[in-house]
Simulated assay, not measured.
Amino acid sequence: MSRPIDLLFLGDIILDVPDPDHWLSGIAEVTRAADLVIGHLEVPHTLRGEELEGDVPAPGAEPAHLAALARANIGMLSMAGNHIADCGAIGIADTIAELDRLGIAHAGADANLALARRPAVVARQGRRIALLSYNCVGPEISWATGSRAGSAYVNVLAADGGPSRPQAELVAADPGSVAQMQADIAAARLEADVIVMALHKGITHRPAALAPYERPLAHAAIEAGADIVVGHHAHIARGIEFHRGRPIFHGLGNGCVVTHALTPAQDHPARAEWAERRKKMFGFEPDPAYPLAPFHPEAVNGLIGRCRIHAGGRVETGFLPIWFAPPGRPVVPDGALKDAVAAYIDRIGLAAGLPPLEILDDNGWIHLGSFASDAAPAL
């Protein structure tokens, strides 16, 4: 490896409105400059399939919109989430077929559980980077089995003893399920130099809060050999911590989410009902200036995670503050707005009980420190 490798991490991506290049254009200059960008694909991209019953389904997005991700240099996608099976097996198959055609690596959802658990592996500057992806929030009907398409998963138990589902109070990961995740990490080490673990986890639409299972599960991934853990699903940013010298981005928030599926003014009864119910559940009223991203008002604060891997094994960790301009387009802020977003990311980590971070401004990127290869032998 003759020069450092820049890995960037984006949160949830939903591009189901026209002109996807426009919605990505505010961050595309940054993503195109990276060696590898990893994001989370939230919904299937298909014009076919049957609507999944048992949760609030997202609509399938236009398959042609995936090409905008390739044009923005997004080269890997995690897919294990609560909506990827919303158009059934056909939706997953159509999405995978288009990603394969575009040369975008993917992990976390496939035609059966064995395939969904397999890592995606790409090479950059002589290093092999593996991505593993797990859904930690249900619903169980979306999980893959030996004969059913769906997502890889960690079974997180609900406080009421009911099934795992996004609206439940999820409290503790099943030990057997965690052990399986750790075995998958150990197996991925045979194929890769760097392992990125993507966990679809957390409490949606609530500032700062981490569910009881989130830190133990992320720590378990690091202890099994993961080098970097990234979280998404909450649609609002979370804090950052280090465990055994390795970074955990507990919640990247939205990477680029533009959709009509969350507005109450629609003809799909289940989605319209959920758009109203979530406001009462989580105590917020969306800003009317954000009809394509009607999330908690604090969700306008976001981040792109970064790990820069140097030839000698030293790893720098940081993030770039991003801000969501109405009606939901991510942009790179500067000046006082950039400082305010960076301060927000620091503040929510402390509010969630995470250790304080050493934050330094590094030409717009927020530098969180570095660690040597002896702290992370796999790197």
Rank of each mutant, 00 (worst) to 15 (best):
M1T: 10
P4D: 02
P4G: 04
D6E: 15
V17L: 11
V30G: 00
V30A: 06
R32T: 05
V37G: 01
H45A: 02
L47D: 12
E51G: 00
G54R: 10
D55Q: 05
P57I: 01
P59S: 15
E62S: 11
A64T: 14
L66P: 12
A68K: 06
A70V: 02
R71Y: 00
A72S: 13
G81I: 07
N82C: 04
G88S: 12
A93T: 14
A93S: 15
E98R: 15
L99T: 08
R101F: 04
G103Y: 13
A105G: 14
H106A: 13
H106V: 11
G108A: 10
A109E: 11
D110S: 15
A116F: 00
R117I: 13
A120F: 03
V122P: 13
Q125F: 03
S133D: 12
N135V: 08
C136N: 04
C136W: 01
P139A: 09
W143C: 08
W143L: 05
A144R: 07
G146Y: 10
S147C: 02
A149M: 05
D160P: 09
G162S: 12
R165L: 03
V171L: 14
S177K: 11
Q180R: 14
M181K: 06
M181L: 15
V194C: 13
V196E: 08
L199K: 03
H205C: 11
P207K: 08
A209K: 08
H219W: 08
A221V: 12
A224T: 10
V229D: 03
G231R: 05
G231Y: 03
H233G: 01
A234W: 00
R238V: 06
G239Q: 08
R244Q: 15
C256L: 03
P264W: 06
A265C: 01
W274K: 02
F282M: 04
P286E: 06
D287Q: 07
A289L: 14
L292P: 03
A293Q: 14
A299G: 02
V300D: 02
V300G: 02
L303W: 00
L303K: 05
I304Y: 06
R308H: 05
R308F: 03
R308K: 09
A311Y: 01
P330K: 07
D334G: 15
G335T: 10
D339I: 00
V341S: 04
A342L: 10
D346H: 02
I348E: 08
A352Q: 04
G353S: 03
D362R: 09
H367G: 07
L368W: 04
G369Q: 04
A372G: 14
P377K: 13
P377G: 05
L379K: 01
